[in-house]
Design a protein around this nucleic acid. Structure first.
Lengths: 206, 206
DNA sequence: TTAGGTATCCCCCAAAGGGTGTATTTTTAA
DNA sequence: TTAAAAATACACCCTTTGGGGGATACCTAA
């Protein structure tokens, strides 16, 4: 049986180096390349498709979430494992929603990485224990929360736009934006803009 | 000449592994150990003091900034290099103010890490180019900006307090708090609460 | 002694936020 | 597939907060 071909995308050279070392002695896993940004990754896989991509979620320019989506659309045969420093629900959720098969935290050890790669290459999913716990904890309280529109408006608020500005940007009436803002605050149980922004940043929806 | 003894503190195993690999073939650098949190690090150096510690800035429990401070107080002979994902002024500043001799971003390559270790071991300082640029850009505009009172009020705003609430908490009149809020916004050239909170968080003054 | 930080007040209007109601579309579940 | 539920869009009410401007005065550290 041919080895599982793995590709790494991470803007931190140290992490690439670390993973490379950890995979070095695995006979059934072969690291076929690495990239430090989304575009280099796309260029590479145009010529050669790995079985599994280990992909950092937070990268300059194009994020891992976007890259994951594109890769999965173009090459459904490539499985993606998200890599992240943050054990944050929104990230995990975003990756899984965009076609990722797994999620690892960067403090994962050798054993966990290898297990994840094997599982994912077989078409299974693998989410690291801690991440899975987060997913479970937040599943009920966080997922049903904000609608697409509310999310969108929250992002624009966090960008510093006022309700009138948002209204004109989205071609909505001020009342509508007003209502959305109020209802998202009610849902999140937040009573002013300051805490709203903190929420948005802490849940990574800037 | 005996090799430079290096210790790594980072909560991400991949990063430790990556640095270890990069330092492997350096004859004049010896990696004597690693830890994944501040306390393990302190335990280790009680018995054996490295020449240089590579220290992640954001760690659970005790941050790198605090650890750096303690290490430098107890063992002035140990030089510290801060390691971080974020090229953020406040972090770099905080590390340097607490006795760090250097600052590296996690996308540093082998050459840069080795240079940094050598420089720092000699008692010099080493700040990665990008970080140095950030430091330079922010130096003039950030330091003289806010007064103690304005800082205090900004923190309270970020905690979600309204002006009236801040006034009663600080035993000030609403007008005073109002004035402070306005003048700090004028100084920072920020026009609404949303951006103000982002500023506060991004500059680590939550 | 002079500038800057602090504290106080005024006016004014725009924006935020709390409430309630309604109509249309889209989603989801029975 | 159809009925219920949720999302979206809009409106009007009203009060509080935010934010732009200008003015005055005290205190303290260069």
């Amino acid at each position: 049986m041919s080895p599982i071909e793995v590709f790494i995308v991470d803007d931190h050279y140290m992490v690439i180096e670390g993973i490379r070392t950890m995979l070095q002695n695995e006979k059934d896993i072969e690291l076929i390349g690495h990239a430090s940004n989304a575009n280099s990754c796309l260029m590479f896989i145009k010529n050669r498709q790995p079985d599994v991509i280990l992909m950092d979620i937070s990268m300059p320019e194009k994020t891992g979430v976007e890259l994951c989506k594109e890769v999965r659309q173009m090459y459904p045969g490539i499985f993606v494992i998200g890599l992240s420093t943050f054990n944050q629900f929104s990230f995990i959720e975003a990756m899984m929603e965009n076609g990722a098969s797994g999620y690892l935290l960067k403090n994962a050890d050798k054993k966990e990485i290898i297990t994840a790669i094997h599982q994912v290459a077989k078409g299974h999913t693998y989410v690291s224990e801690i991440a899975a716990a987060t997913l479970k904890n937040n599943a009920h309280q966080l997922s049903p929360l904000l609608t697409r529109r509310e999310h969108e408006i929250l992002r624009l608020i966090a960008e510093g736009l006022t309700n009138p500005a948002i209204a004109s940007k989205l071609f909505l009436s001020l009342s509508t934006v007003d209502t959305h803002r109020k209802s998202l605050m009610r849902k999140l149980n937040i009573k002013n803009t300051a805490l709203l922004i903190r929420y948005a940043i802490e849940h990574n929806m800037i």
